[in-house]
Every structure is written in C-alpha cells, then in structure tokens.
Design a protein around this nucleic acid. Sequence first.
DNA 1: CTAAGGACCTGTCGGC
DNA 2: TGCCGACAGGTCCTTA
Length: 270
Amino acid sequence: MPELPEVETTRRGLEPLLIGKEIAGFEIRQPSLRWPVEETLLARLEGQRINALGRRGKYLLILADAGSLLLHLGMSGSLRFLEAPRPPATHDHLDLVFAGGARLRFTDPRRFGSLHFTDSPENHWLLRHLGREPLGEAFSSEYLRRCARGRRVPIKQLLMNSRVVAGIGNIYASEALYRAGIHPRRASGSVSPARFGRLVESIKLVLREAIEVGGTTLRDFVDGDGRPGYFQLALRVYGRAGEPCRSCGRPIRQIVLGQRATYYCPGCQR
DNA sequence: CTAAGGACCTGTCGGC
DNA sequence: TGCCGACAGGTCCTTA
C-alpha cells in the first residue's frame, strides 16, 4: 500500500519523534519478512543515538553513527510510535525499543516489508542499483528519454522499473500518465521528447501534491491504531474504471499491464 | 542486454 | 450464511 508519498509522510512524521533517541534494543516476534531479519546485525545499533531519517525511493533509513536501519513497508506495512510498551497485536512483527521505554512498532500483515542493518546505505544491495529519485533534480526528461531509447516495454512499466526511477508505484504511474496525456501501453521508445517533458513534470507534480496532502491531513504516528489511511489526493483515473473522465467524460478504462491493474482515459491518452 | 512471469504472504470482497 | 477464487498499494529473482 505505501507509495512513495506515504513513505515520505511517514519519514517526516517520525523524524521529530526519533531524532536523539537512544536505541536500547529490538524485540523481534516474527523475523520472517521479505528477507529474514538478522537480529545479531541489528544489535550493532544498541546504545546508538538516531541522527536523522532518510528516504531512498520507498526505502526508509534510520541513521546513526554506527550504521543505519533500512526499512521497507512492502504492500501492507506501517510504523507507529508508542510512548510506552503495549501488548502487540497479530501482525506487530517487531519493535525498535528506545531507552526510556518508547518504541517504534512495525506492523505488516502481508510480510512483504523488510528490515536490514547497513553500515553503508549507498552500497547496500537493495539500494545500489536503484534509479534516480523522482523528485530529485537529476530526474529530468533527458534522463528518462535516454532510459527509454530503443525499448519496447510499455511506458507505464518503465516508470515502475526501480532501476530507472525509484519508488513510482502502481497508483502514481497511472495518475502521472493520465496527466501527461500518454497511453500507458505506448512503447517507451516511441514517446516524443516533448511528452517526456510533460511526463516528468506530471510525475513530480502528482507526487508533490500527494505528499503535501498527506502531510497536512493524515496520520498521527503516536499511539493510535497505526492504520495508515489513504491520501485524500483526488485520483483522476486509478480505481475509476467505467466512471467518466473528469476532462472529456469518456469512461475510464481498466487494463492489465505487467500483471498490474492499469487505468487510463481512451480519449485523453495516446 | 531486454522482457515476462513467478515468488513471497495475508486479508477482503464478489459471486455462487 | 459459507466457501472459493480473484485480487490488493511491491519488487526481487529466474528464465527465455
């Protein structure tokens, strides 16, 4: 569920709560996540203070001097900050425990999420081959055009390729293509230079909007039930099969691309 | 190298 | 009401 804007909202919400906290230890109830959680490695963070929270694509980084925690929320993961211990519920797989008793609790019914220790995030195998940050300066229409050159894969799948650009998920791929007027099935290499410009702008716009809305309307990370909730961002095509396009009125279509539901307007997207 | 499909896991929903 | 299959916001890995 968590798309990039939600991970960024999580990062921003947690950062003021976590900075300066001393890590006392970990309570791991279910180490079997996407990859096995290695408790002995995590232990290297005991006694460390948290310096900052970072994000790379949809990966969240909790940084300390001796190393960092690298966390992914997968499809169904969420984090919440507890001021004091509280009995864990079914899918509360692990707690990061701080000196003084507060904790950060990771919940993830589907267990597609992950937690790693790394002393060099930029070289970690999960991050090493990630493409550019979609909100970064370096993610430009020239860059995307270069990545697309000669490729026949549908443009939507190119956007969801993490080696090209990090963290564009299924919802925002459809939304950005709609705003750019590009058919999701169009061969990547056949998108015109001008349209790559529109596409990159659309990606940045839709992500920024979602982060803004998420930051202002959503979520308290303290206690609560930890349900992430969804962004109030008005989705223009995602999940709207059969409903009228807000621009031209034609019914939004749903197709499958790369085994993922894909939505577009047959009138507005070419 | 590119592209396609499988794998991992649980919860929810629609149809019969 | 109960059961069963399809599907869900991710993404790495294997195979062709």
